[in-house]
Nucleic acid binder design. Structure first.
Lengths: 217, 217
DNA sequence: ACGAATATTTGAAGACTGTCCAATATTGTT
DNA sequence: AACAATATTGGACAGTCTTCAAATATTCGT
């Protein structure tokens, strides 16, 4: 089990410095990539010496872990804000979540951070764990609406559909995300996703998910 | 315009060495990630000294470019092999391509390489360019079948649908790829993808793609 | 305003990195 | 067999990186 490291910074000044470091670290990762994610660049970004970063985060790994936790927490909040829309039925909510997610994917922040995260998860058990937990929540949110528009599905089937919807959206990141080759097609992509994925959620049957590969070729 | 660097290695021995270096480099990227992608690790993997790698590839960037070109070329071949299946109508071919692509995504090689590539494309214009060219071909292959199952679509609309199909499949990589959290759900994911994406290709209309956000909220 | 706790700077250690070069070994051709 | 072209080794180089310890500066409760 991997636990969340507690955040350093006792005095008001130190606490602010920790804020600056974390913000700068995220900025470096977004703007310059994992390759440039060094203490020196992070320190330079908040006009500070390397030793000070090293003082507040004795190990670089700690900085990464705290930064990742805060970042994913902010996305959790974003996700919850999407949900809190009054006066909508499940199908409308599902459609709205799709639209808002694809909208967020277009930001530089999300496009860069999540592509980096998917790569880092290949090697780092910590990153892989946090990514898994985060998307688990995403699937829960989406699954809630899937279950409502298609009550016949079992809990596991609902999760499978939510997983497909989530993956379909995330897959747009490297291709239609911020400054990606087909970014200009995001509007039509969104229209297709909303239509196709909502239709899938409403019409898919246990039979569809059970039959599997029997008639593949 | 970025050109493909020509491959060094004049004598038979040197040519073999270049092969080993390229294979080892790809192995390092797959097994240990971009962070461990150093000349020394690559050299160690093929029992050779750093200076020799440096001799065959005077700049590290050259090694990266040659490696990436050869790798994407191998995927091009794989893609063409998928296409050459006799006696199938367009819909069956589309379904088969989806199944084979998702099958390939489950390999460690593809799961790791493409997630790394998407991240590297954020910073490297060269990687971004090659990724764009590669997926351009993917869209062409898929688009060919989309156009056949849905002749009413314009060329641009066909590409949009192909882009959506491709992105939906690629999106499975970080979640259902090799040793990813929901890898065990790839069979049901494949069933859903084949059904849903083929249905989309057959039934989507110009109207669907033009209406856009008019009734979003 | 004093003094302890905290923050920051400075400097340096030790381990990396990519690149380069001279010496040596191997290859292919004549 | 001789000889030039190519390949390989081993080491040096100037950087960079993280980490650490000592010295200095700042903050906060008293």
């Amino acid at each position: 089990m991997i636990l969340a490291p507690s955040r350093p910074g006792i005095y008001a000044r130190g606490s602010e410095t920790v804020d600056h470091i974390l913000k700068a670290a995220l900025g470096v990762l977004i703007d310059e990539g994992a390759d440039a994610f060094t203490l020196r660049r992070i320190a330079a970004r908040c006009d500070m010496k390397v030793g000070n970063v090293s003082y507040h985060f004795p190990r670089k790994e700690m900085l990464i872990q705290v930064m990742l936790d805060e970042m994913l927490e902010s996305y959790d909040k974003l996700l919850e804000e999407m949900v809190r829309k009054p006066g909508l039925v499940a199908e409308e909510r599902l459609k709205l979540v799709i639209i808002l997610c694809l909208d967020d994917i277009q930001t530089k922040r999300t496009t860069h951070l999540f592509t980096e995260l998917w790569a880092l998860a290949n090697q780092s058990a910590f990153v892989a764990d946090r990514v898994r937990l985060f998307y688990g929540k995403v699937h829960e949110v989406i699954g809630e609406y899937v279950a409502q528009v298609n009550p016949a599905l079992s809990a596991d089937e609902v999760h499978s559909v939510a997983l497909f919807i989530s993956a379909s959206m995330e897959g747009s990141t490297p291709f239609l995300g911020h400054q990606k080759p087909w970014a200009h097609k995001m509007p039509v992509f969104t229209a297709m996703a909303a239509m196709s994925l909502v239709h899938l959620a409403k019409t898919v049957t246990s039979r569809d998910l059970a039959g599997l590969m029997t008639e593949a070729a």
